[in-house]
Simulated assay, not measured.
Amino acid sequence: MKRFKLFGVVTILSLMIAACGTNEEKNNGSSNEGNLVPVKAELSVPEKVDKGDTVVFETVVTQGDEKVEDASEVKYEVWMEGKKKDSKMIKSEQKVDGLYTAEYKFTNDGQYQVQVHVTAREMHTMPKATVAVGNVENGGHAHDEGDDHPHEEKGNEHSHEESSVLIHFMKPDDVKVAKETKLITHVTKNDTSLSKAQVRFEIWQDGSEKHEWVTTEEMKPGEYTGTYSFSEKGEYHVQVHVENDEGVHEHTMEMITVE
Protein backbone atom coordinates (compact mmCIF):
# COMPACT_ATOMS: atom_id res chain seq x y z
CA MET A 1 0.00 0.00 0.00
CA LYS A 2 2.84 2.34 0.91
CA ARG A 3 4.54 1.52 -2.37
CA PHE A 4 1.38 2.40 -4.25
CA LYS A 5 1.10 5.74 -2.47
CA LEU A 6 4.78 6.50 -3.14
CA PHE A 7 4.36 5.62 -6.80
CA GLY A 8 1.34 7.90 -7.00
CA VAL A 9 3.26 10.82 -5.47
CA VAL A 10 6.19 10.32 -7.86
CA THR A 11 3.81 10.16 -10.81
CA ILE A 12 2.08 13.40 -9.81
CA LEU A 13 5.40 15.18 -9.31
CA SER A 14 6.57 13.98 -12.74
CA LEU A 15 3.42 15.30 -14.38
CA MET A 16 3.83 18.66 -12.63
CA ILE A 17 7.45 18.98 -13.78
CA ALA A 18 6.48 18.07 -17.33
CA ALA A 19 3.69 20.64 -17.29
CA CYS A 20 6.07 23.33 -16.04
CA GLY A 21 8.52 22.42 -18.79
CA THR A 22 5.77 22.67 -21.39
CA ASN A 23 4.68 26.08 -20.13
CA GLU A 24 8.29 27.29 -20.12
CA GLU A 25 8.67 26.17 -23.71
CA LYS A 26 5.53 28.05 -24.62
CA ASN A 27 6.82 31.18 -22.93
CA ASN A 28 10.40 31.00 -24.18
CA GLY A 29 10.21 28.77 -27.19
CA SER A 30 9.00 28.95 -30.73
CA SER A 31 6.68 31.93 -30.26
CA ASN A 32 9.68 34.20 -29.57
CA GLU A 33 12.29 32.25 -31.45
CA GLY A 34 11.75 34.17 -34.68
CA ASN A 35 12.44 37.46 -32.92
CA LEU A 36 15.94 36.26 -32.06
CA VAL A 37 16.84 35.63 -35.69
CA PRO A 38 18.02 38.85 -37.39
CA VAL A 39 16.44 40.11 -40.58
CA LYS A 40 18.97 40.30 -43.40
CA ALA A 41 18.85 42.19 -46.68
CA GLU A 42 20.88 41.17 -49.74
CA LEU A 43 21.27 44.22 -51.98
CA SER A 44 22.06 43.72 -55.68
CA VAL A 45 23.09 46.63 -57.92
CA PRO A 46 25.39 46.78 -60.97
CA GLU A 47 28.94 47.94 -60.28
CA LYS A 48 29.15 50.06 -63.45
CA VAL A 49 26.55 51.56 -65.79
CA ASP A 50 26.44 54.13 -68.57
CA LYS A 51 25.05 57.61 -68.07
CA GLY A 52 21.37 57.64 -68.98
CA ASP A 53 20.83 53.99 -68.09
CA THR A 54 17.79 53.00 -66.05
CA VAL A 55 18.88 50.49 -63.42
CA VAL A 56 16.85 48.03 -61.39
CA PHE A 57 17.82 47.74 -57.73
CA GLU A 58 16.97 44.42 -56.10
CA THR A 59 16.92 43.38 -52.45
CA VAL A 60 16.03 39.98 -51.05
CA VAL A 61 14.90 40.16 -47.42
CA THR A 62 15.21 37.04 -45.27
CA GLN A 63 14.96 35.94 -41.66
CA GLY A 64 16.83 32.70 -41.21
CA ASP A 65 15.70 30.42 -44.05
CA GLU A 66 12.42 32.32 -44.50
CA LYS A 67 11.84 34.89 -47.25
CA VAL A 68 10.27 37.98 -45.68
CA GLU A 69 7.23 39.13 -47.66
CA ASP A 70 5.71 41.36 -44.96
CA ALA A 71 8.39 44.06 -44.59
CA SER A 72 6.83 47.27 -43.31
CA GLU A 73 9.24 49.46 -45.30
CA VAL A 74 11.80 48.93 -48.04
CA LYS A 75 13.14 51.97 -49.86
CA TYR A 76 16.33 52.93 -51.65
CA GLU A 77 18.46 56.01 -51.02
CA VAL A 78 20.74 57.19 -53.84
CA TRP A 79 23.35 59.93 -53.76
CA MET A 80 26.50 61.01 -55.59
CA GLU A 81 29.75 60.85 -53.62
CA GLY A 82 30.13 64.13 -51.77
CA LYS A 83 26.42 65.02 -52.12
CA LYS A 84 24.72 63.01 -49.36
CA LYS A 85 22.55 65.96 -48.41
CA ASP A 86 20.98 65.83 -51.89
CA SER A 87 20.10 62.14 -51.68
CA LYS A 88 16.91 60.76 -53.26
CA MET A 89 14.55 58.27 -51.66
CA ILE A 90 12.78 55.76 -53.91
CA LYS A 91 9.97 53.49 -52.78
CA SER A 92 10.25 49.84 -53.73
CA GLU A 93 7.78 47.41 -55.23
CA GLN A 94 7.37 43.96 -53.74
CA LYS A 95 7.69 41.07 -56.14
CA VAL A 96 7.81 37.46 -54.91
CA ASP A 97 9.85 35.45 -52.41
CA GLY A 98 10.96 38.47 -50.37
CA LEU A 99 12.21 40.42 -53.42
CA TYR A 100 11.81 44.21 -53.38
CA THR A 101 12.80 46.24 -56.45
CA ALA A 102 12.97 49.83 -57.66
CA GLU A 103 14.11 51.61 -60.81
CA TYR A 104 16.44 54.59 -61.03
CA LYS A 105 17.81 56.52 -64.01
CA PHE A 106 21.36 57.85 -63.67
CA THR A 107 21.60 61.08 -65.66
CA ASN A 108 25.09 62.22 -64.64
CA ASP A 109 28.59 60.77 -64.56
CA GLY A 110 30.03 60.00 -61.16
CA GLN A 111 30.43 57.60 -58.28
CA TYR A 112 27.13 56.87 -56.51
CA GLN A 113 26.10 55.23 -53.27
CA VAL A 114 22.94 53.10 -53.17
CA GLN A 115 21.60 52.17 -49.76
CA VAL A 116 18.49 50.14 -49.05
CA HIS A 117 16.55 50.83 -45.85
CA VAL A 118 14.68 47.77 -44.66
CA THR A 119 12.30 47.72 -41.70
CA ALA A 120 10.75 44.31 -41.09
CA ARG A 121 9.44 42.47 -38.05
CA GLU A 122 10.52 45.27 -35.72
CA MET A 123 14.11 45.13 -36.99
CA HIS A 124 16.10 47.46 -39.23
CA THR A 125 19.03 46.93 -41.60
CA MET A 126 20.67 49.24 -44.16
CA PRO A 127 23.25 47.62 -46.49
CA LYS A 128 24.99 49.84 -49.04
CA ALA A 129 26.69 49.43 -52.43
CA THR A 130 28.63 51.60 -54.91
CA VAL A 131 27.76 52.24 -58.56
CA ALA A 132 30.16 53.86 -61.06
CA VAL A 133 28.26 55.82 -63.71
CA GLY A 134 29.79 56.76 -67.07
CA ASN A 135 33.02 58.74 -66.92
CA VAL A 136 33.65 58.62 -63.19
CA GLU A 137 36.76 60.82 -63.40
CA ASN A 138 34.67 63.77 -64.59
CA GLY A 139 32.21 63.27 -61.76
CA GLY A 140 30.01 66.32 -61.51
CA HIS A 141 26.93 67.05 -59.46
CA ALA A 142 23.61 65.37 -59.98
CA HIS A 143 20.70 67.54 -61.12
CA ASP A 144 16.99 67.01 -60.61
CA GLU A 145 16.09 68.18 -64.11
CA GLY A 146 15.46 65.37 -66.55
CA ASP A 147 15.61 62.60 -63.94
CA ASP A 148 13.09 59.82 -64.25
CA HIS A 149 12.54 58.52 -60.73
CA PRO A 150 9.19 56.81 -60.08
CA HIS A 151 7.87 57.04 -56.49
CA GLU A 152 10.74 59.35 -55.57
CA GLU A 153 11.03 61.18 -52.27
CA LYS A 154 13.71 63.64 -51.25
CA GLY A 155 15.47 62.42 -48.15
CA ASN A 156 17.55 64.05 -45.44
CA GLU A 157 17.26 61.25 -42.96
CA HIS A 158 20.83 60.47 -42.06
CA SER A 159 23.97 61.70 -40.47
CA HIS A 160 27.17 63.20 -41.81
CA GLU A 161 28.04 61.79 -45.16
CA GLU A 162 31.38 60.11 -44.53
CA SER A 163 30.46 58.84 -41.07
CA SER A 164 29.95 55.16 -40.39
CA VAL A 165 27.02 56.13 -38.13
CA LEU A 166 23.68 56.27 -39.91
CA ILE A 167 20.49 57.78 -38.48
CA HIS A 168 17.13 56.79 -39.92
CA PHE A 169 14.31 58.96 -38.58
CA MET A 170 10.89 57.35 -39.01
CA LYS A 171 8.92 60.41 -40.04
CA PRO A 172 5.42 60.16 -38.51
CA ASP A 173 2.31 60.59 -40.63
CA ASP A 174 -0.77 62.68 -39.84
CA VAL A 175 0.60 64.66 -36.88
CA LYS A 176 -2.14 66.53 -35.00
CA VAL A 177 -2.01 69.47 -32.56
CA ALA A 178 -2.04 68.51 -28.86
CA LYS A 179 -1.94 64.82 -29.70
CA GLU A 180 0.96 62.80 -28.29
CA THR A 181 3.19 61.79 -31.20
CA LYS A 182 5.64 58.90 -31.09
CA LEU A 183 9.04 59.76 -32.56
CA ILE A 184 11.24 56.83 -33.57
CA THR A 185 14.75 56.71 -34.98
CA HIS A 186 17.06 53.83 -35.87
CA VAL A 187 20.82 54.20 -35.44
CA THR A 188 23.48 51.93 -36.91
CA LYS A 189 27.26 51.97 -37.01
CA ASN A 190 29.07 49.97 -39.67
CA ASP A 191 25.71 48.40 -40.61
CA THR A 192 25.20 47.16 -37.03
CA SER A 193 22.61 48.48 -34.56
CA LEU A 194 24.17 51.08 -32.26
CA SER A 195 23.05 50.40 -28.69
CA LYS A 196 23.48 52.31 -25.44
CA ALA A 197 23.69 55.70 -27.16
CA GLN A 198 22.27 58.98 -25.88
CA VAL A 199 19.65 59.97 -28.43
CA ARG A 200 17.60 63.17 -28.13
CA PHE A 201 15.16 65.04 -30.36
CA GLU A 202 15.58 68.81 -30.60
CA ILE A 203 12.27 70.36 -31.71
CA TRP A 204 11.37 73.91 -32.67
CA GLN A 205 8.73 75.59 -34.80
CA ASP A 206 9.82 77.19 -38.04
CA GLY A 207 10.71 80.82 -37.30
CA SER A 208 10.77 80.36 -33.52
CA GLU A 209 13.80 80.72 -31.26
CA LYS A 210 12.36 78.38 -28.59
CA HIS A 211 13.85 74.89 -28.77
CA GLU A 212 12.59 71.91 -26.76
CA TRP A 213 14.39 68.64 -26.07
CA VAL A 214 12.92 65.14 -25.92
CA THR A 215 14.85 62.27 -24.39
CA THR A 216 14.42 58.76 -25.78
CA GLU A 217 14.36 55.20 -24.56
CA GLU A 218 16.05 52.35 -26.42
CA MET A 219 13.14 49.96 -27.04
CA LYS A 220 15.23 47.40 -28.92
CA PRO A 221 18.85 47.38 -30.15
CA GLY A 222 19.45 50.56 -32.15
CA GLU A 223 15.83 51.78 -31.97
CA TYR A 224 15.16 54.88 -29.87
CA THR A 225 11.68 56.22 -29.08
CA GLY A 226 10.35 59.40 -27.51
CA THR A 227 7.00 61.21 -27.41
CA TYR A 228 6.06 64.85 -27.95
CA SER A 229 2.85 66.90 -28.19
CA PHE A 230 2.97 69.76 -30.70
CA SER A 231 1.17 72.83 -29.32
CA GLU A 232 0.40 74.63 -32.59
CA LYS A 233 -0.15 73.95 -36.26
CA GLY A 234 2.71 74.61 -38.65
CA GLU A 235 6.12 73.40 -39.79
CA TYR A 236 8.50 72.06 -37.16
CA HIS A 237 12.19 71.19 -37.26
CA VAL A 238 13.11 67.89 -35.62
CA GLN A 239 16.84 67.38 -35.20
CA VAL A 240 18.07 64.00 -33.98
CA HIS A 241 21.23 64.07 -31.85
CA VAL A 242 23.20 60.85 -31.27
CA GLU A 243 26.12 60.59 -28.83
CA ASN A 244 27.88 57.83 -26.92
CA ASP A 245 30.87 57.31 -24.65
CA GLU A 246 33.03 56.15 -27.58
CA GLY A 247 33.10 59.57 -29.23
CA VAL A 248 30.10 59.33 -31.55
CA HIS A 249 28.45 62.72 -32.03
CA GLU A 250 26.13 62.83 -35.04
CA HIS A 251 22.90 64.54 -35.96
CA THR A 252 20.38 64.85 -38.76
CA MET A 253 17.30 67.01 -39.28
CA GLU A 254 13.79 66.53 -40.66
CA MET A 255 10.72 68.73 -41.10
CA ILE A 256 7.31 67.73 -39.74
CA THR A 257 3.99 69.34 -40.69
CA VAL A 258 1.50 69.58 -37.83
CA GLU A 259 -2.17 69.93 -38.70
Rank of each mutant, 00 (worst) to 15 (best):
E69G: 13
M253N: 11
K51N: 07
V118C: 09
Y104S: 00
E81M: 03
Q113D: 09
D109F: 10
G110T: 04
P46A: 11
V240G: 03
S159M: 03
K196M: 05
K84R: 15
E235H: 04
V96A: 12
K220V: 11
V60M: 10
T227A: 03
V214D: 02
K88M: 13
D206F: 02
Q198K: 15
G64D: 06
E161Y: 10
M126V: 12
R200S: 11
S87I: 04
L15F: 15
V187S: 03
G52F: 10
S195Y: 00
E42W: 00
C20I: 15
M170D: 08
S229G: 05
Y100Q: 03
N32E: 14
L15D: 09
T59N: 07
V9Q: 09
S14W: 14
H211D: 04
V78D: 02
P150Y: 05
T216W: 02
A178H: 14
P38T: 10
V61F: 05
V68Q: 02
V45L: 10
E24V: 09
I167G: 04
G155A: 13
F57L: 13
S163H: 08
E122L: 08
K233F: 01
V37H: 05
N135V: 12
K196A: 11
Q205W: 00
T225R: 07
H251T: 05
H141C: 00
T227G: 00
N27Q: 10
K171F: 06
N108C: 05
N28G: 02
Y100I: 04
G226A: 01
R121W: 08
H168I: 05
V114E: 01
A142Y: 12
V187P: 01
G226N: 00
E122Y: 07
T227W: 01
V131Y: 02
D147I: 13
H149K: 13
Y224I: 04
G247F: 10
T130K: 10
K2P: 00
T22A: 08
V248L: 05
V74I: 13
E73K: 14
D173W: 00
Q63P: 10
N32I: 15
Y112N: 06
H117A: 08
R3Q: 11
H158M: 03
E69Y: 08
N135W: 06
H160Q: 12
S159C: 08
E103H: 06
D191E: 15
K233Q: 03
G226Q: 02
G82N: 03
H124A: 11
E47K: 15
